[in-house]
């Protein structure tokens, strides 16, 4: 839109309408543009971009912490020789379970940020009186947190893969070892990101106050997994009750990793429950989808 030359900024001091009103005859991109914008804006928001310095501390600190195990893993791989490489605790197989606590903290810090403010300050009224539909809002926010978490998790795993490629004797052997890992990494990371984000967002959508929401999310992830682990390991649970293991978020993550990469994982709950890891993986997918549905229903009904 062209600005007429006589729109002088300084002349507007304290008075209203000393300049004519301009209509807008340009393109109107409608609902899809609104969704895309809300998604990218929320994604940036998750990393504190456009929010000032303090908001960037938590997401970038957690991103750095998720990076650390990968760097250590690559270091052992490169410097430790064959024996060390065999005992390497940080391989793509185990990466997600190694950083599970950081995933939980990332969601704890960012899910309330994404949803709470719009509810607390009734900004939803302004969103829902525009081209955007209520479902679009839920989808954009869910997509943003899932993407943010996936980005945070993909970068270290990419470093792990590159480590495998370049630590090998020749490039061909390295690629041969690394390429089969790409698909399990992508699939398990996306499901894990969706599962953790979904649970966090659903809790945040029902608790507008940031501190309370964060408390509830961290309790869900840490306390629930602790309690379930104690029950499963100490409880000698009979058949229907051993499925309580499926309530442990970290067990779902471990089952997911075992299913995608094959082999064993470190989570005691999964091992001791005796349930097939694929059941845990399926459960993680179900929770990811169900939490999106709950989020959409919540925003369809929320008063705004």
């Amino acid at each position: 839109m062209a600005q007429p030359p006589d729109l002088v900024a300084g002349s507007a001091t304290g008075s209203i309408f000393d300049l004519g009103y301009q209509g807008y005859d340009g393109p109107r991109l409608g609902r899809r543009h609104a969704i895309a914008t809300l998604f990218t804006q929320s994604l940036k928001w998750t990393f504190g971009i456009g929010r000032g310095g303090r908001a960037k501390i938590a997401p970038f600190a957690l991103a750095a912490l998720t990076l650390l195990p990968a760097v250590i893993g690559v270091g052992i791989q490169a410097l430790g020789g064959a024996a060390a490489a065999k005992a390497n605790p940080v391989t793509p197989h185990q990466y997600l379970t190694v950083v599970q606590t950081f995933i939980a903290f990332f969601v704890t810090a960012q899910a309330p940020e994404l949803l709470g403010r719009d509810q607390r300050h009734h900004v939803l009224t302004l969103y829902f009186s525009r081209a955007l539909e209520r479902t679009d809002y839920a989808l954009a926010k869910y997509g943003a947190l899932v993407s943010a978490l996936a980005i945070v998790l993909f970068v270290p795993q990419l470093i792990l893969l590159l480590g495998i490629v370049f630590a090998s004797i020749d490039l061909g052997a390295g690629l041969g070892e690394a390429l089969p890992l790409v698909w399990p990494i992508v699939a398990s990371t996306i499901v894990a990101a969706a599962f953790f984000s979904g649970v966090g967002l659903v809790i945040a959508a029902f608790i507008p106050r940031r501190a309370f929401a964060a408390g509830a999310i961290v309790a869900t992830f840490l306390v629930l997994s602790g309690v379930v682990q104690v029950l499963v390991v100490q409880g000698r649970l009979r058949d229907p009750f051993r499925y309580v293991a499926l309530l442990d978020p970290y067990a779902l993550l471990d089952g997911l990793a075992r299913t995608m990469f094959g082999g064993v994982g470190g989570n005691v709950t999964v091992t001791r429950s005796g349930i097939d890891p694929a059941v845990f993986a399926a459960c993680a997918c179900v929770v990811a989808v169900v939490s999106l549905v709950v989020l959409i229903v919540r925003y369809r009904r929320i008063e705004a």
């Binding site: 839109m1 600005q3 729109l7 009103y21 301009q22 807008y24 340009g26 393109p27 109107r28 991109l29 409608g30 609902r31 543009h33 609104a34 914008t37 809300l38 302004l126 969103y127 525009r130 081209a131 955007l132």
Partner: peptide
């Protein structure tokens, strides 16, 4: 919010100032 109403980014910025 202008973008939420479907305006492209630059137009949204210009109209906001206006």
């Amino acid at each position: 919010l202008a973008e939420m109403s479907g305006l492209p980014r630059t137009a949204a910025r210009e109209r906001t100032a206006d």
